[in-house]
Design a protein around this nucleic acid. Structure first.
Lengths: 268, 268
DNA sequence: TCGAAAATCTCATGATAAGGGATTATTGAT
DNA sequence: ATCAATAATCCCTTATCATGAGATTTTCGA
C-alpha cells in the first residue's frame, strides 16, 4: 500500500484524516507521511486549490468543501438513493426498524441512505458508514448474486469469517449457502453485525445482471414473531425487486435517449 | 486554472463530475481533458484505488465511496454541525422557515446543515449546496466581520454585484454598510438570493476573531410582521452568539488538554 | 507596527511521467 | 462453457518535471 508515485503520494494525504483525527498541522503530516517541507506544502496547496482540503489558521488542515459538494452531487443525482428513498420510508413505516440502502463498491459496502422508526436505534448506520464485507444479511444478499468469477476469490479471501458465521466450513459449502440465498431471493442474519438485531436484505440490480446494492431492514430480534418474519421477508424481497425494476427502466430509458441522439448525429 | 503539473492534472479528473454529468466513460474523459489513453487510465486507476472514483461496467466512472465516507467524517466530527444542529432545529420550530448552518471556506460558502419547517420550501439549500458569495444575509453576516485585510480585496472583486444589491456604489460606502451590520450583530436581506424570501443571519466565531460560519433563517417575506421581524432578529443574533460560545469553549477545552499533554510530555 | 512562525521560492539534480504501439484482460453474446 | 470485441494495461524511450536543502517572503498574533 506504500505510495509508489507522486500521484499516490498526493492522495495519501487525504488518507490521514480519520474519525479520530480531522485536523492536522503540516508538521504532523510531515512526520506521519515522511515528506519534506516543500513537497508537503506543494501537495497541500494543490489539494487546497482543488477544494479537497481547507486550512484554518492556527488549527491546521482538514477536509475541504469539495468533499461536501461532491457528496451532495451523489445524493442529488444517484438513481439508487432517489428511487430507493420511498421504499425505505415505507419499510420504516411498517415496522419498528431501521431500513437502509447499501451500495456495493467492489471491495467495500457503504450505507447511502437510512430511515429509522424506532426511538432509540440499536444499530446506527447513517450514510457514509462502511459496513462489514463478510458478515450480515446485506453482504450476503449481494454476494449471493455475484457471478462465480467475482464470488470465488472473495469467498476464499474471507473463508475464516464466513465459516465463523455458520455459512459452512469449505468453499463448496459456503457456495451452497449462497445458492440457497439466491433461491430465496433475500438473505437474513441474526446478530451477525449487532447483537440482538436481525437483518433482512434483498439485492438490487441495475440493468445488468450483477447486483449493485442491497435494501435492508434491521429490527430488534425481540420484536420478531413468526408472522412478522414472513411479512418482512415478503416486503423486503418485493422492495428489492421493484426498486430493481425502477432502476433498469430508468437505465433503459437513458440508453434509448442515447441511441436516439446517436441516430440524430448520424443523420442530422 | 489550466493544470500545470501531474498533481493538478490527476485532480482535474474529479472536476469533470457535475450535477449534469455524473458518469463518464474513459473515451469521453480523454476528449474532455485531452489526456492520452495510458495516462488517463493511470490517473483513473490511482483515483479508483484511493476510493475517489468507482467504475461501473458499461457505464463508465463516477464518484467513489471515499467521498461519501469523508463527508460522513465531516458530518460526524464537525463541531459546527454537531453544536449547531439544536439551534437550527429550535429556530425551525419557532417559525415557518428554513434554518441553515453555512460554513465559510475562504473563497466559497457552503451549507452544512439545514432544517425546514414549511411543507413546500421556497428556497432549498440542503447540505453541500454552494451559496452565492456576494449576495444574501449569510454572505453579509460573514463578510461584515472579516478583518479589513481580507474584506477589502473581496469587496473590490465583487464591486458590481455588491452595488447591485444596494450596499453602496463605492468601496467606502460598502464598507460602511458592513460596519452597520457589524454594529447590529446580524444581517438581513430581502429577495437577494430567492425572490419573496427574507434572510436573517448571524456570524459564528470559533475561538479566533474572524468568523468561520453563519447561522441563517430564511422565511417567506409574506410571513413577516414587524413584531416577528424583531423576534427573529433577536433569536438569530442570540443563536449565533451562543453557538460561538459553545464552539470557543470547546476549542479552549481542547487547547487545555493539549497543554496538559505537553506538560506531561515534558515531565513524564 | 513589529517580530516569530508559517508558507513559498530558487535551482541543480536525478527520478519518473508521458505516450505511441503492442499486448493482455474482461465482458457479454452465442 | 466458449469466443469475438472491447476495454484496460504494458513496454520502453525521451524529455519533462518532481524533489529538497537552504534562503526568502508572507502571514498572523501581540
Amino acid at each position: 500500500m506504500a505510495a509508489s508515485n507522486s500521484l499516490e503520494r498526493v492522495l495519501s494525504v487525504l488518507q490521514v484524516f480519520s474519525e479520530d483525527r480531522l485536523e492536522w498541522t503540516p508538521e504532523e503530516m510531515m512526520a506521519e507521511l515522511g515528506y519534506s517541507r516543500p513537497t508537503l506544502y506543494r501537495y497541500l496547496k494543490t489539494l487546497k486549490d482543488a477544494g479537497l482540503l481547507t486550512s484554518t489558521p492556527n488549527a491546521g488542515f482538514s477536509l475541504g468543501p469539495k468533499i461536501v459538494e461532491m457528496d451532495y452531487l451523489l445524493r442529488k443525482s444517484d438513481a439508487l438513493s432517489l428511487n430507493g428513498q420511498p421504499y425505505i420510508e415505507d419499510l420504516a413505516g411498517r415496522y419498528p426498524c431501521t431500513a437502509l440502502l447499501v451500495r456495493w463498491y467492489g471491495k467495500k459496502i457503504l450505507c447511502v441512505a437510512s430511515e429509522c422508526s424506532t426511538p432509540d436505534p440499536l444499530s446506527s448506520y447513517p450514510r457514509g458508514r462502511p459496513m462489514p464485507l463478510a458478515r450480515g444479511a446485506i453482504s450476503r444478499s449481494i454476494m449471493a448474486f455475484l457471478p462465480r468469477r467475482q464470488l470465488l476469490p472473495m469467498v476464499k479471501a474471507n473463508l475464516d469469517e464466513l465459516s465463523a458465521v455458520g455459512l459452512g466450513d469449505t468453499v463448496e459449502e459456503i457456495l451452497d449457502s449462497y445458492r440457497r440465498v439466491r433461491k430465496a431471493g433475500f438473505a437474513t442474519a441474526q446478530g451477525e453485525v449487532t447483537a440482538g438485531v436481525t437483518g433482512f436484505a434483498a439485492p438490487i440490480f441495475d440493468a445488468g445482471k450483477s447486483p449493485i446494492a442491497s435494501i435492508c431492514l434491521t429490527i430488534a430480534s425481540a420484536e420478531l414473531t413468526p408472522d412478522r418474519e414472513i411479512a418482512i421477508s415478503r416486503d423486503i424481497a418485493r422492495a428489492g425487486a421493484e426498486l430493481s425494476n425502477d432502476l433498469s427502466d430508468r437505465r433503459n430509458a437513458l440508453d434509448e435517449d442515447e441511441n436516439d441522439t446517436m441516430r440524430e448525429r448520424e443523420h442530422p
